[in-house]
């Protein structure tokens, strides 16, 4: 299994970075080989161009970017999903991590 790269995205990349920490913790517990990082909506293009991304998770507060970002991702075949509000609020790292894995096709 190669390392998976999950990109989280919100307005300033602040609150998602909080979730990143929780997800990393969950990843260690579940023994998943994964790189998780957060970025801002305006940093989306740059991150996408400069590093490997296997899946994008949007904070619910920027769900309005879903359509726009999906268009940019179709060529690259990168799946995108909006994080469930409840999981986001409770900063449920494990659930969001599993949601990401589901997006990337299991494992």
């Amino acid at each position: 299994m190669p390392t998976k790269n999950i990109m989280l995205c919100c307005v300033a990349g602040m609150s998602t970075s909080l979730l990143v920490n929780k997800m990393k913790k969950a990843a260690t517990e579940l023994e998943k080989d994964v790189v998780i990082f957060a970025t801002s909506v305006s940093g989306f293009d740059q991150e996408l161009a400069s590093r490997q991304v296997d899946c994008v998770m949007l904070g619910p507060q920027v769900s309005y970017m879903e359509k726009d970002f999906k268009e940019k991702l179709t060529d690259k075949n990168i799946p995108l999903s909006v994080i469930n509000m409840q999981d986001y609020g409770m900063m449920n790292g494990e659930k969001v991590l599993l949601q990401a894995y589901e997006l990337m096709g299991g494992e």
């Binding site: 609150s15 909080l18 619910p60 507060q61 409840q86 609020g89 409770m90």
Partner: peptide, 18 residues
């Protein structure tokens, strides 16, 4: 703790306020 730094998505979505 995030609230002290004016980050409150956990409150908004978790409490929830939405």
């Amino acid at each position: 703790v995030p609230g002290i730094f004016n980050i409150n998505e956990p409150v908004i979505y978790g409490y929830p306020i939405v």
